[in-house]
Simulated scan of single mutants.
Amino acid sequence: MKAVPESHLSRLPGKTHQTHQALWRGLPLLQSEAVQLGPGSHAYEMLQIIGRDMLVFRSSFAPKMASTIVPHPDWMVFMVPVHWLGDHVFNGQVARPFDVFVFAGPDGYSSIGAGRHNLSLGMRKSKLRETFASLSGRYIDDIALDNQRIALGPDLGTRFHRRILETIAASFDEPLGPGKFALKAGVENDLFADVADLIIAQTIEDNAVSSSNLEPVRVVRRAEEIFEDYVTNPPSIADLCKAANVGARKLHLCFNEVYGAPPIAYLQAKRLTQARSLFLAEEGPPPSVKDVALSLGFTHSGRFAKRYQSLFGEFPSETLESR
Rank of each mutant, 00 (worst) to 15 (best):
D107S: 14
D107H: 14
D107V: 15
D107Q: 13
D107P: 12
D107K: 12
D107M: 07
G108C: 03
G108K: 07
G108S: 05
G108E: 00
G108A: 01
Y109D: 07
S110R: 15
S110N: 12
S110P: 06
S111V: 09
S111I: 12
S111A: 10
S111M: 06
I112F: 15
I112N: 11
I112G: 02
I112L: 11
G113V: 02
G113E: 05
G113S: 04
G113Y: 12
G113M: 10
G113A: 05
A114E: 14
A114L: 02
A114G: 12
G115R: 00
G115P: 00
R116V: 09
R116Q: 10
R116H: 07
R116N: 04
R116W: 05
R116M: 08
H117I: 01
H117K: 15
N118E: 11
L119N: 11
L119A: 09
L119R: 09
S120F: 10
S120K: 09
S120N: 08
L121T: 01
L121S: 10
G122C: 12
G122H: 13
G122V: 13
G122L: 14
M123F: 07
M123T: 05
M123H: 03
R124L: 13
R124C: 14
K125W: 00
K125T: 14
K125E: 02
K125P: 03
K125I: 14
S126T: 15
S126F: 08
S126L: 05
S126Q: 12
S126E: 10
S126A: 08
S126G: 09
K127G: 07
K127D: 03
L128A: 09
L128Q: 04
L128S: 06
L128I: 08
L128P: 08
R129S: 15
R129C: 08
E130W: 06
T131K: 04
T131H: 03
T131Y: 06
F132Y: 12
F132I: 06
F132T: 00
F132Q: 00
F132E: 03
F132L: 05
F132W: 02
A133W: 10
A133G: 03
A133F: 04
A133C: 05
S134E: 14
S134P: 04
S136T: 02
S136E: 06
G137C: 03
G137L: 09
G137N: 07
